[in-house]
Design a protein around this nucleic acid. Structure first.
Lengths: 100, 100
DNA sequence: ATTGACTTGACTTAATTCGGTCAAATATAG
DNA sequence: CTATATTTGACCGAATTAAGTCAAGTCAAT
């Protein structure tokens, strides 16, 4: 599940048109279309609005938002999955020995 | 292990000064210092040079390079680890149903 | 206290990404 | 065929990041 898919799902479940949701977010509908197709990534602040409109936990949207950014980096990389594991190691290591 | 740590390790194992390695890479030594401390991220092409100089597999350096980029995104995120898992899911999904 | 190796902070310029818009093209439904 | 919804490509200015440099500062050993 990508962020775009999630947004589309939420919108459709609420029988809302792209035009309607776009106007609530104060963006053009062409832009929203791209967001739902993960061709563009939404501004982070918009997540709050989405969370309110659809009564969806903000944390969940944020995790998807970050994941999309990460995915954009590794999607064309052969060593993508390995890199993910290394990054995970790094974050775990740094949690343990966090420099205050 | 971060990319910076790796580079330092390789350099020291070869008893090379920052100044020497920097000149091989054709950058200033102040810059190399930052790279070894992961304050800056090296240009991707430099990895080839490093791989040649130190006889170190390019793939390994590349995985570290990508991991550092990913880590930069998630390091301050509460949901960082969860986001990694979501991204992993996305890449796996997309490998399976890859649109040619 | 001088040297040599390294670190740091402030700065710069060029390139890239962000956050969109708009009009034309394409489904889809009636 | 017409209307409505969505998608796409080209484009845009603003903001951010990349890729460094340089000089001053630190730190250890002599």
């Amino acid at each position: 599940m990508t962020l775009g898919q999630k947004i589309r799902e939420l919108r459709e479940r609420n029988q809302m048109l792209q035009r309607e949701l776009a106007s609530k977010l104060e963006v053009g509908d062409g832009y929203l279309s791209k967001i739902e197709r993960d061709q563009k990534i939404i501004k982070r602040e918009h997540l709050k609005t989405l969370s309110t409109i659809f009564k969806c936990p903000l944390k969940e949207l944020e995790a998807l938002w970050i994941a999309t950014k990460v995915y954009d980096i590794i999607k064309y990389e052969e060593t993508g999955l390995e890199a993910l594991r290394v990054a995970e190691e790094q974050i775990k290591y740094n949690k343990t020995y966090a420099k205050v």
